[in-house]
């Protein structure tokens, strides 16, 4: 109760941080899924060069710490004359890192698509592009909802790292509140529970989406 009285004046500030986390995550998830789908399609391409480039991207961004990637963009982009805000940089970095993991998930989904189904689409005269966007990708997405979900949950947890480049999202805001109230233990404990509840809710949502999308999709 005493803690609540201490924290009360900062609730608005923390909610702003939470809103920033939500915005950053939503945009980064959209970016990661787009980039991941594109990369997965490149990785399943017949062209060796295209495949090589996509594989290299995935390999590098999965094996370098996100913090290092983030610093690379945050300090490096101005060097190139690209001046964007810390939040924008963070969202871009999250999209790129997330895309590498998402591409893995979608690629393994693509490999599960029955060759006969693709044959049927081919002989019906659909273009390669249409076959990919209307048949292969939707099927791949359905079978990979769960692994995709864990990647997205990881992305939400990763968003806390944006606090290291001055973005006052939830963790950044909490840091300030912890320092000004001298209650770091309580603040961070609540924050930890908050994140855990958020990602648990998210994983329930993912399960629901999985069941909904795969209602009629066991087998061919």
């Amino acid at each position: 109760m005493r803690f609540w009285r201490v924290i009360e004046p900062y609730i608005g500030f923390l909610l702003q941080g939470f809103a920033l986390t939500v915005v950053a995550c939503l945009l980064a998830i959209a970016g990661a899924v787009l980039l991941g789908a594109l990369t997965a399609s490149m990785r399943s391409s017949g062209n060796g060069l295209v495949r090589g480039i996509a594989n290299a991207y995935g390999d590098v961004f999965r094996n370098v710490p996100f913090l290092v990637q983030l610093f690379f963009f945050f300090y490096g982009l101005p060097e190139l004359g690209i001046y964007i805000g810390a939040l924008e940089t963070g969202i871009i970095a999250m999209s790129i890192a997330g895309g590498a993991f998402v591409s893995d998930v979608i690629l393994s989904g693509i490999l599960t698509v029955d060759a006969g189904v693709i044959d049927a689409a081919k002989v019906s005269g659909l273009s390669r592009f249409k076959i990919f966007t209307r048949i292969v990708l939707p099927i791949a997405m359905r079978v990979s909802v769960r692994p995709m979900g864990s990647v997205l949950i990881n992305l939400v947890l990763t968003s806390s790292i944006l606090s290291t480049i001055t973005v006052n999202e939830l963790t950044g805001a909490a840091k300030i509140v912890a320092a000004t109230t001298f209650k770091p233990f309580e603040v961070y404990a609540v924050l930890l529970v908050l994140y855990a509840s958020l990602t648990t809710l998210l994983s329930f949502a993912i399960s629901a989406v999985h069941h909904r999308l795969n209602r009629f999709m066991t087998g061919g």
Binding site: A174, P184, V187, Y188, A189, L192, Y195
Partner: peptide, 21 residues
């Protein structure tokens, strides 16, 4: 589950700033 589902950075802050205080 709590450890897997919360950011490591927050865990670090909790331990480094929170526990000593």
């Amino acid at each position: 589950e709590a450890l897997k589902n919360s950011p490591v950075l927050v865990q670090l802050f909790l331990v480094f700033f929170g526990i000593p205080a």
